[in-house]
Design a protein around this nucleic acid. Structure first.
Lengths: 128, 128
DNA sequence: CAGAATCCCTAGTGATACTG
DNA sequence: CAGTATCACTAGGGATTCTG
């Protein structure tokens, strides 16, 4: 865990958008948020749903999402203990703000991939 | 430079959204895109505008953005050479899809920070 | 000016084991 | 079940140097 940054650039680091984009860009954060949007889930339930995340990362990301007020953690005193994670209203609004990006991705991924192929073909031609 | 991933999880890695979110989450990519939205810029012009990016990163990010078809690179044969980067239509639509996120960030950063303070205060109380 | 190539170092991440 | 703690790794990113 490191603080934002120590002394650097005035343009990038201070920008509120940066912090949010970092969170959105986080490999798992948005994924978790989107999952919780449909229903509350428990720890291992999320773990299985995501399949590929280590429990360390899951635990870590959940903690920061909770810290940011984007989701809420509820421990239920059963034996063994049950913990339920649910999205907060704030988290929901963020998830909504991400939707246009999802849409863009789905609509334009093909074009991006095509551009990549073109670029790579071009480069290969030059290399020859 | 690594390929997407080799064999892992079916849920996270295959998702088109993941690739895009990675790009959006990239520390500089979106920043650059947003800058270019207003006007084409040259390499060192961007470098100065961002202030804090290393030229390695700038060069690297520019290259992948170009590869993705999100911006276009034009080398003009002057002495010394001039290179101009401009956003593509595809890049513009992505930038637009990011706007809701910017807005969310600006509107809700305060609340996020407040949540963080609450969380931290809570934790400190428990630690005592 | 616009980059490419190197070196280097640390922070992010996974795997493994342990706990309440 | 729901985590925490350790260790060990490597890839991301900065600083520096060189080039067309």
């Amino acid at each position: 865990m490191k603080a934002a940054s120590l002394k650097p650039d005035a343009y990038a680091a201070n920008c509120p958008t940066r912090q949010i984009l970092d969170r959105v860009g986080d490999k798992w954060a948005v994924l978790i948020l989107l999952l919780l949007r449909s229903e509350p889930m428990r720890f291992n339930q999320l773990r299985r749903a995501i399949e590929g995340i280590s429990q360390k990362m899951l635990s870590q990301v959940l903690k920061s999402l909770e810290r940011d007020g984007l989701l809420r953690r509820r421990a239920i005193a059963t034996v063994p203990v049950t913990v339920e994670y649910s999205i907060t209203p704030l988290g929901s609004t963020l998830a909504e703000a991400v939707d246009p990006l999802r849409d863009w991705a789905e609509q334009n991924l093909k074009e991006v991939l095509a551009a990549q192929r073109r670029y790579d073909a071009q480069r290969k031609a030059l290399a020859a």
